[in-house]
């Protein structure tokens, strides 16, 4: 059985758990705890170690989705989770400009871990206050070749589109490496 993995990362409350839950064939295995920090009490629980989802491709192949913890004090898990990843998705809550700087830091940290392809998912695009993906590209200083995709993490089709675009980028990189 071959197992491949993708990492879903991003700041606190960016929608990582929902993203994995939208496509995972198992209920997301979450290591959530009640939030103790007053500053981050915009939701009741948060991921402290990782989220885990699975998509079985066949008897011999399975895709694992790992969601990273969003709170800074659990970021020692990032290094562990990123090892051997096929690619990663950086989730950004498009309605929370105060988290964009953190998203950029996370993106740069994951870029430094591995030279694997990644995409940025501009989540919560169904909300009125959402920043447009192309504005996020400028603020996050993304290179033109990095895909930034509109996303609604609770919508399965939207999540599928993000994962597919990441897989297309992985294919492109494989083709480039084989040339």
């Amino acid at each position: 059985m071959q197992a491949v993995k993708m990492v879903i990362t991003g700041p606190f409350s960016a929608g990582k758990t929902e993203f994995i839950g939208a496509v995972s064939e198992i209920d997301v295995v979450s290591t959530e705890r009640k939030i103790s920090s007053a500053a981050e009490q915009i939701k009741e629980t948060t991921t402290v170690a990782m989220d885990f989802g699975r998509i079985t491709v066949g008897d011999d192949l399975v895709l694992y989705l790992f969601g990273t913890p969003g709170q800074r004090r659990f970021d020692f898990m990032w290094d562990i989770l990123s090892q051997g990843m096929l690619g990663f998705v950086v989730m950004v809550d498009s309605t929370k400009p105060e988290t964009f700087r953190e998203a950029k830091r996370i993106l740069e940290t994951f870029e430094s871990y591995a030279s694997t392809p990644y995409v940025v998912a501009a989540n919560k695009q169904d909300m009125e206050d959402a920043w447009e993906p192309e504005d996020l590209r400028i603020i996050l200083r993304l290179r033109q070749e990095v895909k930034i995709l509109p996303c609604v993490a609770t919508d399965k089709e939207s999540v599928k589109n993000v994962l597919l675009e990441l897989l297309y980028s992985i294919l492109e990189q494989l083709d480039q490496n084989s040339q």
């Binding site: 990123s82 090892q83 096929l86 940290t109 591995a114 030279s115 897989l167």
Partner: peptide, 29 residues
């Protein structure tokens, strides 16, 4: 920033065949 885990060397992507990625694409679709 608090703690930021840093790895000394940039890891290379895992050795995955094109056919594996194509199967993943079909499955996600």
């Amino acid at each position: 920033q608090g703690r930021r885990p840093k790895r000394q060397a940039v890891e290379q992507p895992p050795d995955v065949k094109r056919s594996v990625v194509e199967r993943l694409i079909d499955r996600i679709k």
